[in-house]
Computed example of a mutant assay.
Amino acid sequence: MSAQETAAASPVADAFARDGFVCPIAVMSAAEAADYRRRLEAAEATYGGDKTFRKMLRRYPNLVLPFIDEITRRPEITDVIAEILGPDILVLDAPFFIKEANTKSFVSWHQDLHYWGLETEEEVTAWVALSPATAESGCMRFVAGSQNRRVDHRDTYEEDNLLTRGQEVAVTVDESEATDAALRPGQMSIHHGRVFHASHPNRTDDRRIGLAIRYIPARAQQVKGGSMAAMLVRGEDRYGNFRRCRPPTGLLKEADIAHWTEIAEARNKIMLGGEKN
């Protein structure tokens, strides 16, 4: 099934094709979101002093935290993604984007697919809110229709930018054209990897916690290198274009950490030009 054939039968896919994003979409109850947040913060309380653990929250946490792998496989999420990408779905990564209360952290305007080394434009990011994401807390912002543009980027390395290199589009974005993607805990937005997106600092007294799950169809391929890995979460992988990730066996188990290290290092060489974790 092609993305075009899927989109023809799906209002969500139609809106996605038109605007490059759709929100809000309910994918779990507020109580379930609160439980996932509790499990995250319990892990942070135990392991948060470890630099490698903090890196894991931003690179493939689904390889070392079973409850993150569980979220990526929830049918409430993957059924929506399948409306756009078809039934056979891989997770390329699932990083957390966490803004602490009353901090300056922000995300500059950028396009994800500029960096990812894929030969396809078929990609959907599901941004799942585990805490309130509002204009005040720095929710995601999108420019509708910008997924149809290809623009240059530059690296700024700004200290408060949550992106690894502070990467941003090398064009001026009219803020008045942006849409705030406000979400309640348990809701998600979905966006195309080419749509312009950004977010402001968190000016509230609560953390803004979001999980950005990067979904691609199993038929996708790389154009850079050949060592990237992905996790099959729905359907079948009849192509074998990516190294297969394996689900975690427990919470931060030694074998899973070794697996994470291997996968993350290969990812960095391709997606960020060798940038370290």
Rank of each mutant, 00 (worst) to 15 (best):
V233A: 01
E168V: 07
G193F: 05
Q221P: 00
D174M: 07
R184T: 10
D152W: 04
P217Q: 14
C139N: 02
A133G: 12
R208H: 13
A135C: 10
Y157N: 14
E177V: 05
A182W: 02
A135R: 12
R154Q: 15
R165H: 14
R149Q: 13
A126R: 09
E168H: 05
D174K: 05
G166N: 02
H153L: 10
S131M: 03
T179H: 09
V128W: 01
S227D: 15
D152N: 14
E236Y: 06
I213Q: 00
R214W: 10
I213M: 11
D180M: 05
C139L: 09
A182I: 14
I213C: 03
A230S: 09
R149K: 13
R150G: 11
R165K: 14
S131D: 04
S137I: 07
A220E: 01
H192Q: 06
S137L: 04
V143T: 06
I216Y: 08
H153T: 12
S199M: 06
M188C: 11
R154F: 11
A144S: 12
S137E: 06
M228G: 02
E158K: 05
D180V: 05
R149M: 13
P132Y: 12
R194P: 03
A230M: 07
S199I: 02
A229H: 13
G193C: 03
Y215W: 12
A212D: 15
E158L: 09
I190N: 04
A178G: 12
E175L: 11
K224F: 14
S176P: 01
R149I: 10
M228S: 11
D237T: 09
A198R: 05
P132D: 13
Y157Q: 13
A135Q: 14
R238A: 15
A181P: 00
R208I: 08
R203K: 13
D174S: 09
E158P: 00
H191G: 02
V151I: 12
A212K: 04
V195Q: 01
S131Q: 03
H191K: 07
P132I: 14
Q167Y: 03
V124F: 04
A133W: 02
S131P: 02
S176A: 15
R154W: 06
E236C: 08
V128P: 00
D155I: 07
N161E: 06
R203E: 11
F142C: 08
G210F: 02
T172D: 15
D155T: 05
H192C: 08
L232A: 04
E159I: 11
A170L: 10
A212M: 13
I209S: 05
V169D: 00
F196P: 00
L232R: 03
A212F: 05
A230Y: 10
